[in-house]
């Protein structure tokens, strides 16, 4: 599995597991900030900018939020 595929898989897992919370996107963004290396976040953000195919909506929103902050 390519690195980007693995990152997409991981982000989607986060999305699934935080989906039980009302503030799922906040939690997902916080998790990415606290546990993912910046290089991983950057790669996935670039992937989102390129369309983010296969990435779940909450993960896309969370990554865009991190890009802004």
């Amino acid at each position: 599995m390519q690195e980007i595929d693995q990152l997409v898989k991981m982000a989607n897992q986060l999305s699934d597991n935080f989906s039980f919370h009302e503030d799922a996107v906040d939690r997902l963004a916080d998790h990415l900030r606290r546990f993912w290396a910046p290089s991983m976040r950057r790669k996935l953000s670039t992937f989102v900018d390129a369309g983010g195919e296969g990435l779940q909506p909450d993960a896309i929103v969370a990554l865009r939020r991190l890009q802004v902050s």
Binding site: Q2, E3, Q6, L7, R34, F35, A37, P38, S39, M40
Partner: peptide, 18 residues
């Protein structure tokens, strides 16, 4: 101030070449 790579992330990044 930012987290580093975990073991599996290191392996993925190694295969990616960086």
């Amino acid at each position: 101030a930012d987290p580093g790579l975990r073991i599996p992330n290191m392996f993925d990044a190694a295969i990616s070449g960086h």
